[in-house]
Simulated scan of single mutants.
Amino acid sequence: MTAPAPISAALFLHTLGDSVVTLDGQPLTWPAHSAEELLWYLHAHEGGAYRADVLAELWGLEDTPAAANRFRVALCRLRATLGSADAVTEVRGRYALHPAILAQSDTAALHAGLLGARFARDDAEREEALRRALAVADGDYLPGVRGDWADAARAHHRAARVRAYVALATLHCARRECPLAALALTRAVECDPLIGEDHHQRLMTCLAATRGKYEAVEHYRRYCRYLREEVGDTPMSETACLAERIKQGEVPCADTMLAAPATGSLPFLGR
């Protein structure tokens, strides 16, 4: 009996800012859209998923014989496209991408970088790990893919990107590298405008110190507009007071300790 072909090390799954699989740098051609859909669903469910759940959540189907046949065809095409019968494993009814394929993706690199930062021996090693993580984070997870399952995975990976940017800002802020701290915080709030309001406050103080009060107040106004239009809420009174102080020409970072905490207080960087 012929052994299954090994998982190609030249495969790579691009999911952040894109949704494409490459082999030796060239995009794969999919024989059917259902095979590609199954790939991304399984990528979003690293622990695997039962056939009935795949059918219901991905295609809105009940687990009938006809639907089960559709699943088998999509699975066969997916394995063939990825070049190995082991590309998707099945254990006690749960289907999952092979760990080697999961490891060959940008999300794996993102979370590996965060884990490396968490256990880094010093600030230099921590910063290097964070930059490795963010180097692959070009955008949202599987942009354009719809479904509650995709939204949940998108939020998970977005939160990881935000944690990386906030941790990087914390490092820069502790070293009083204000422009770099402002840049990292700007990236964090761009990823998720609903990041904690304290981070918006920190960004306002960084902007006041590095780009002047007009930039800081403009960020505050954009934040107010976002909360009003998207959430139906208003900023906290502390944030409004901070904006007023900046309007009056204060640079609060130096005298209110709104700068980032010491390195030992880095945000949680776990998965």
Rank of each mutant, 00 (worst) to 15 (best):
R126W: 04
C191K: 09
A150P: 00
A67L: 02
V136S: 09
P6E: 02
L28P: 02
A5K: 01
G147Q: 00
T22I: 06
G17T: 06
T89R: 10
S105E: 10
V189I: 15
L266Q: 04
I7E: 09
R222V: 00
A80P: 02
T107F: 04
T107D: 04
L242P: 01
V145T: 12
D198Q: 10
E125S: 12
D106H: 01
G139H: 05
F119P: 06
A67P: 03
T205D: 09
L110K: 02
A188V: 09
T256Q: 01
G249T: 05
V166F: 13
G93A: 12
A208P: 02
E238A: 09
R211T: 03
R158Q: 13
R77H: 13
R211G: 01
L75E: 06
L78Y: 12
A124Y: 00
A112Y: 13
G144H: 11
D122R: 06
D122M: 01
M236A: 14
T64Y: 05
P31G: 03
A68N: 11
F71S: 00
H172M: 07
E250A: 00
A3S: 09
G17R: 12
T15E: 11
L61M: 14
R146L: 12
I246N: 02
L115F: 11
V73F: 07
P252E: 02
A160C: 03
L97V: 04
L75C: 07
S19H: 15
L11H: 11
H199T: 14
F268Q: 07
A117G: 14
A164E: 06
A35Y: 02
L75Y: 00
D198S: 09
V88P: 15
R154L: 10
A174H: 10
I7M: 07
Q248V: 02
L183T: 09
R175N: 12
E190K: 03
R228G: 06
T234E: 12
A169E: 05
A164Q: 06
L134P: 11
A52L: 12
R72N: 13
A85W: 11
T256Y: 03
